[in-house]
């Protein structure tokens, strides 16, 4: 079937990486692998699973270092990542930063929208408290969750707030969908919850009302992204 080709094999039908980090990392790894393979002078099948062939931990560390050397810094998802290696990651965004503009009369103002994970017979009111760090959870474990807390949570997971979640009066989650773990837990615990929340200028201590009477969005394959009119509103009171 022809001479052994030591160059990386291109796909006839293309394939472009969708993200810059993957593009940079994979191109670097592929180039290193091709060099390593060419240096063996053997057929691919003779070396591919040989002990000692292939890249090592230090090679992969260099791949990341190459990108960092350009000044690029990574997004983080787990807090532990940026705590342990702050030099690799972008500074955490301000949790209270608004993502939408407020509209209303100053007394009752729409300050956000979200997808309702738990439809109820009544809307729900409470006091906003941002719960977005391990330290904040520890603090609330020690002092107790203030009654009426509407927790603003960055991630759609159910683990960060696990010890205190049951005590929330409501949850506003900035990520995920109603199928995410936090959405599942909101239904099991019967805690009002809006997911994929876009939130305006709201700070700790603000009183808000959640439109918990809004039907949940259609998450079937055929449904397009939820229209704004189908999303539950968040009002700031006073």
């Amino acid at each position: 079937m022809g001479a052994q080709d030591t160059a990386p094999r291109r796909n006839k039908w293309g394939g472009e990486h969708a993200t810059p980090t993957v593009k940079a990392f994979h191109e670097s790894v592929r180039a290193r692998m091709a060099d390593r393979f060419a240096a063996t002078g053997k057929r691919w099948e003779e070396v591919v699973f040989d002990h000692g062939f292939g890249l090592t931990r230090s090679d992969y560390a260099e791949v990341e270092a190459e990108l960092l050397a350009t000044g690029y810094r990574f997004d983080h998802s787990a807090q532990i990542s940026v705590v342990e290696n702050p030099e690799k990651y972008k500074a955490p965004a301000e949790a209270t930063g608004p993502s939408i503009d407020a509209t209303g009369d100053g007394q009752i103002t729409v300050v956000g929208y979200g997808d309702n994970a738990l439809p109820l017979d009544n809307d729900v009111e409470g006091i906003v408290r941002f719960v977005d760090t391990v330290d904040k959870v520890f603090e609330m474990m020690d002092t107790g969750v203030p009654p009426g807390t509407i927790a603003v949570i960055e991630d759609a997971g159910g683990t960060l707030t696990a010890p205190i979640l049951e005590e929330f009066a409501g949850m506003l989650c900035k990520g995920g969908t109603i199928k995410s773990h936090l959405g599942v837990l909101s239904r099991e615990f019967r805690i009002p919850c809006l997911m994929a929340v876009e939130l305006g200028p709201v700070v700790d201590g603000d009183r808000v009302r959640l439109e918990s009477t809004k039907p949940p969005p259609d998450t079937s394959a055929e449904a397009a992204r939820t229209a704004i009119t189908d999303r539950a509103r968040i009002w700031k009171i006073g």
Partner: peptide
Amino acid sequence: EFRPLFNDEYARDALGELLGYLSYA
């Protein structure tokens, strides 16, 4: 050996391309 690759962003995007974008060659 691969462990140094998996910072949060690369892992998120490598997974996203693998499972969502389907953009691997």
